[in-house]
Simulated assay, not measured.
Amino acid sequence: MAGSNPFSITLSPGKLRSKPKDTSPRTVAKSDEAAEKHGFVERTPKKRRGRKPSPRTGQVHAKVMPNVAKEISHEAAARGVQQGVLIEEAWALYKAAQKSEG
């Protein structure tokens, strides 16, 4: 025992050594199998959680006259779509008109 304190432990620095873990696929699979038998399951999420990213990432900041803004807003609300959808549709109509002219 070390000294008068029965709970103290004498550690000599030369005896404290770390050993690298065996991370081979076989060993990892074996430890995972043993863990599952004892009720331990992997808790890390399998896929990304939360909202999926929107494909609509381009932003157009159009300044329009107040009356045009109100009309666009009312039309989008009446149709149940976002204002960007109206802009996409208007652009498609514009491109179609350009094709038919040229």
Rank of each mutant, 00 (worst) to 15 (best):
V68W: 06
D22P: 01
A76Y: 05
Y94M: 09
V64M: 14
K21R: 15
G80T: 06
G58I: 11
A78Q: 12
K15Y: 12
G50E: 01
M65A: 15
S73E: 08
P25M: 05
F7D: 15
P45Y: 01
P55I: 09
M1Y: 06
E101A: 05
A62N: 06
A90Q: 07
S8R: 08
G102E: 07
K37G: 12
N67Y: 11
E88K: 07
G102T: 04
L11R: 15
T27R: 14
Q59G: 06
P55T: 10
K46Q: 10
V68Q: 12
V41L: 10
T27N: 13
L11Y: 13
H74E: 15
V28Y: 00
M1D: 07
V41T: 15
S31E: 08
T27M: 12
T44E: 10
K63V: 13
A35C: 03
K46S: 04
V68I: 13
G58S: 14
W91F: 14
D32L: 14
A35H: 03
K19I: 11
R79Y: 10
S8M: 05
S12F: 14
R79L: 12
S31T: 09
K21L: 15
K21T: 11
R26P: 01
E101V: 03
E33Q: 13
A76G: 05
S12N: 15
G3P: 00
T44A: 09
D22R: 03
V41Y: 08
F7M: 13
S4L: 10
K99Y: 00
S18F: 11
Q82H: 13
V85C: 06
T23A: 05
S24E: 05
T44L: 04
A97P: 01
K46F: 00
A35Q: 04
L93H: 09
P13Q: 09
M65C: 14
Q82L: 12
R49L: 11
R26I: 03
S18I: 06
I9M: 11
A35K: 09
A62H: 07
Y94E: 11
Q83T: 15
R56P: 00
A69C: 03
Q98K: 05
E33M: 07
D32I: 10
G14D: 14
A97G: 07
K70V: 08
T57D: 11
E89Q: 09
K19A: 10
R51F: 02
P20S: 12
H74W: 09
